[in-house]
Amino acid sequence: MIRFHDVSKAYSPQRFAVLDLNLEIAHGQTVALVGGSGSGKSTTLKMINRLIEPTSGSIDVNGTNVLRRDPVALRRTIGYVFQGIGLFPHMTVGENVAVIPRLLGWSSARIDARNEELLRLVRLPPEDYLHRFPSELSGGQRQRVGFARALAASPQVLLMDEPFGALDPITRDELQQEFLNLRRTMDLTVVLVTHDMTEALLLADQVAVMHEGRILRMGTPGEMLRSPGHDYVAALLETPRRHLEALRRLTGRESVSHPGAGEKGETANERTVPVGNTA
């Protein structure tokens, strides 16, 4: 469980990145922090593993205030999937995945076994990928390695900072689906930062919309869609809603049952438009 209690972060006395934030994330939940640039969502995420230190307030992870823990030891227990992936270019896939186990001093036999397990989990056959360098992988493959690295030391908490931002739509969709599958099989509390409302609705149990350092609205995707409760939230929801409507109109007889198909529908949409024009 992660609990923010009256957390503020100020870069200068006048300029707050995060202001009096209170947030509870139950064990095993995935929470998406959604908002524009400067909304404080990344700052909130990075305060959990103390890459950024709060100015005031406290953050508990599994009952312990992170500010009382050694930041280095803390980070080794928390998985982190970075914006822009952040693989070390001078290390092979295997070495990247094993970064934290190595820091924790695991035996090489244990590391090898874990590497193999993780690469199979993210569907990169170890016999092909273990010794490759990041420069030899596609964007999607790199982010798979990024996931494997974050999961290597079996963390209970996983932080994801715009994890799909750098990927093309098809790869993004594929990885999002895999993320959902992984989520079901693993006991993980996930905090996901994204600016993409569709992604948040798709992947999260709870969506928290942030604006100017505060949480404007928090709820399940269903609750959000039913009652945005705030103009800004409504505006953010407008995009996925419009996509959904457009798809309904275009496909006509075939109903689109859940917003999760939005991304796939978008690509189908692009394909069908020229056909419609010529017809």
């Binding site: 593993n49 890459l51 280095v72 030891a73 803390l74 980070r75 080794r76 982190y80 970075f82 914006q83 822009g84 952040g86 693989l87 070390f88 270019p89 001078h90 970064v99 934290i100 820091l103 690295r149």
Partner: peptide
Amino acid sequence: PALLEAAEGVGMTPVQILLRV
């Protein structure tokens, strides 16, 4: 800088960041 953040984020100490990254 992104790699430095990644190194810090996985729990490397400043010395480990210097020597390993």
